[in-house]
Design a protein around this nucleic acid. Sequence first.
DNA 1: ACGGGATTTTTTGTATGCAAAAAGCTTGAC
DNA 2: GTCAAGCTTTTTGCATACAAAAAATCCCGT
Lengths: 217, 217
Amino acid sequence: MSRSRTDSIADDLEEMIFTGQFKDGDRLDEIRLAARFNVSRTPIREALQRLVSSGLAAQMPRRGVFVRQPGPVELLEMFETMAEIEGVCGRLAARRISDTALQDLAAANARCQDAIAARDTDGYYRENQLFHQIIYRQSGNGFLEKEALRLQHRLKPFRRIQLRLRGRMAQSMAEHETIVSALTDGDAGRAADALRDHVAVQGEKFHHLMSHLKSSA
Amino acid sequence: MSRSRTDSIADDLEEMIFTGQFKDGDRLDEIRLAARFNVSRTPIREALQRLVSSGLAAQMPRRGVFVRQPGPVELLEMFETMAEIEGVCGRLAARRISDTALQDLAAANARCQDAIAARDTDGYYRENQLFHQIIYRQSGNGFLEKEALRLQHRLKPFRRIQLRLRGRMAQSMAEHETIVSALTDGDAGRAADALRDHVAVQGEKFHHLMSHLKSSA
DNA sequence: ACGGGATTTTTTGTATGCAAAAAGCTTGAC
DNA sequence: GTCAAGCTTTTTGCATACAAAAAATCCCGT
């Protein structure tokens, strides 16, 4: 599957928005971007359209496209939605999960523990992400899985931050254990609640962190 | 908010896919479409990109974009996902719904009844859709609301069909009453279950109808 | 100096041109 | 008749050209 110029430009622009190189409201100038990427406006415009459809930018006809960083309210809404979606995945997965997947979850959890012991935040993040992706997959619903992956990707830059809170990784691990136990028992309600709470607390931690940073600025 | 040529072309193409004017796997020929819409390839290409990002078509680099009608499995997955999302909306709405919104739901239900009495399937469909949209809104989560609307739109062409089953509209109405009652009581669990079941049954009815049509063909 | 309208410049949206990749066709060996 | 190598045609992806809308600038009357 070859990647067109447009694809990589879209990814680069997304990364730039994620890393805050573009502030909220900035206009994404077609000509300037074309110059920066050494291409014509055409692939730039196609990449911009993608940003718009994924919600990272907004288009105003005849005016241009502007980056649209979510404010605190929208961020909470996104985390709440993610929490609910993950809860749904857990509920379905509790009834459908395979034994090998349960082993995979345990293995991912073990690697999470190792990463904590090694103070390897990146590693923890990666394995934690995998843990959740296994559950999406085990919902047994490919469409739901794709939606969950999309949201997970969208929240990536915000989820990373809350991991830095003291003790958060250890707490997160404990929650993972609860989730695995519920899934092992096939307890749909408990799995849904555990996953929902696990993700919801991420949103709350993030919110605390944000308001703390803001008040200390 | 002015609509560019690309916008209306994208809508037209979507409608054509919805109404089955393009079969699964058909290649959407840029030149042919440009001729049909009396425009150049540029706005066609932009419209096609949108179809791809909304899942109605798939792009194969250097080959073209092909319409991608969901098969029976994916359709069931989409209905299941919709059912779960609506359940989530109901759960949240049970805690957050306003009194005026409860009145709006009752009013929409009344208009649904009128439409049934008048054998007005289109009218019923419209009011039923509104009923659900009120609940999305009352989830109090704008992000979730948009996701729900997106899915509702995507399932539109398939949801219409199952209404034609004898007695389905009346049954649907009864389910609406249950939903409103749960929301009025602020019973989150019951609202979630009622909405989930209400939408899930649509998927099942649709599935029955499909396999019936197929076996009789 | 200030405001408002005309004018210039910039920017978007669309059309067209061009190179490279893929699909389709031709021809010839077996 | 079949298959494959080579050529032709088609189609995509990107670059460039151009028209119209929006923004910026200028000009002038007060």
